[in-house]
Design a binder for these strands. Sequence first.
DNA 1: CCCGACCATCTTCCATACAAGATGGACGAT
DNA 2: ATCGTCCATCTTGTATGGAAGATGGTCGGG
Lengths: 238, 238
Amino acid sequence: MAAEVLQPVDEAVSDTIASRIVAALRDEIVTLKLKPGDAISESDIAARYGISRQPAREAFIRLAQQGLLLIRPKRATVVKKISADGVRQSRFIRESIEVEIVRRVAAAGGPETGRALETIIADQEEAMRADDSNGFHVLDEFFHRTLARLAGVEYAWQLIDDHKIQLDRVRYLTLGVASQQRAIAEHKVIAAAVAAGDVTGAEAAMRAHLARAEVLLGQTIADHPDYFEAEDGETEPA
Amino acid sequence: MAAEVLQPVDEAVSDTIASRIVAALRDEIVTLKLKPGDAISESDIAARYGISRQPAREAFIRLAQQGLLLIRPKRATVVKKISADGVRQSRFIRESIEVEIVRRVAAAGGPETGRALETIIADQEEAMRADDSNGFHVLDEFFHRTLARLAGVEYAWQLIDDHKIQLDRVRYLTLGVASQQRAIAEHKVIAAAVAAGDVTGAEAAMRAHLARAEVLLGQTIADHPDYFEAEDGETEPA
DNA sequence: CCCGACCATCTTCCATACAAGATGGACGAT
DNA sequence: ATCGTCCATCTTGTATGGAAGATGGTCGGG
């Protein structure tokens, strides 16, 4: 059943080569094995994965539509640099929707919703203790996704998930245990407010939780300026 | 500079055949020349537009990712039926984001923002008098998009635009002058609240404005049940 | 020494050919 | 007459070849 919930990502129902390439490239991009600005070509990927150019091309199209690649017609295809403004707007989108979600859940929620959330938080604490950074992230995502399902808008979460990749690349640059502890604490506040039916409290808690990304962004830009697009000045400071 | 803001629509920078097919099919789907449930094939489209299968295939991929087509691996490709639940969730997404947008604009807005909106409304009234239904819709979209730009999140509007197609198909089934008059009146209320810096008032006005779609949905399902997916019961009541 | 034109090379884009699987109707057995 | 099987036909997925265009280095002229 858990697998049922995790599988349907909208299009990956078919197990084609192109789909696998999409997943593979997507992972390489988020984990920064493919760095922003790197140039790749269809032939390149085709050779690397031992396939034809056609599936590689289709993968490029899908990833370009997700905002991860930039296909330049007759020139080359590059891994899109992270746009600071784009990250802020992705965060804006996420905050808009998630705030609305917790409002709904808090308004309609009963005691069992609170219990469902607490279970996830407990799992997160265990993952943190086990130093399972990857599992922690999966559970973090599951927490938010569960809220969406409780609000009856799980499809909306899928949307957030698509655009969250932009945020994930930043997040990947700023891992840390302290961050995990704080995330858990904030999740607890949200869960408590939701369980108590405190709409405005839940909204505030969610906003505070998501606001943390703003701080990380500035820090990350300072640390890895070459991964980001030039914002206002010239694009190429020659 | 303004061109800079309007140009980057993410992928349509290149003027390829595939892009034109995407636009053409998208239009046909929204205007219901291609009805939900209709089956189309790559060869079919290729022949119809006098092109090869390859661009048609790419267009299918892009449209499938936008949720308009359903590609069934070795079977056929069909125009996705309208999902009532999907429409509700698209509306939820739109409301979440647009509410947040008007909040921001109302909070930070000055007198010139109100004037910009009023200009658009005036144009809308003219379009209505001229019985230019298409122009009216374009201006309606422009009104909301302008709000997004004033909030500094025009990219977010693009997201809404992508998912608004689901709503547009329903809207296309329910045109009418009365609807236009009401839309203009509601736009005026929103613009007034924004100009006055009335955050909660603007939020309420926007919610009311978008809530109208809910009523239309039920009506439309009743009128065209064959365009919609079966919701809970069996998919095929044989 | 500096600048402009040319060209080999690379890229994406499109066309075509083939492969694998699913469908629906015809056909034959019971 | 009814049911099961087979097969022509359609579908999408993949491979490969050629075309148009952009790039960057090289070469020649000033």
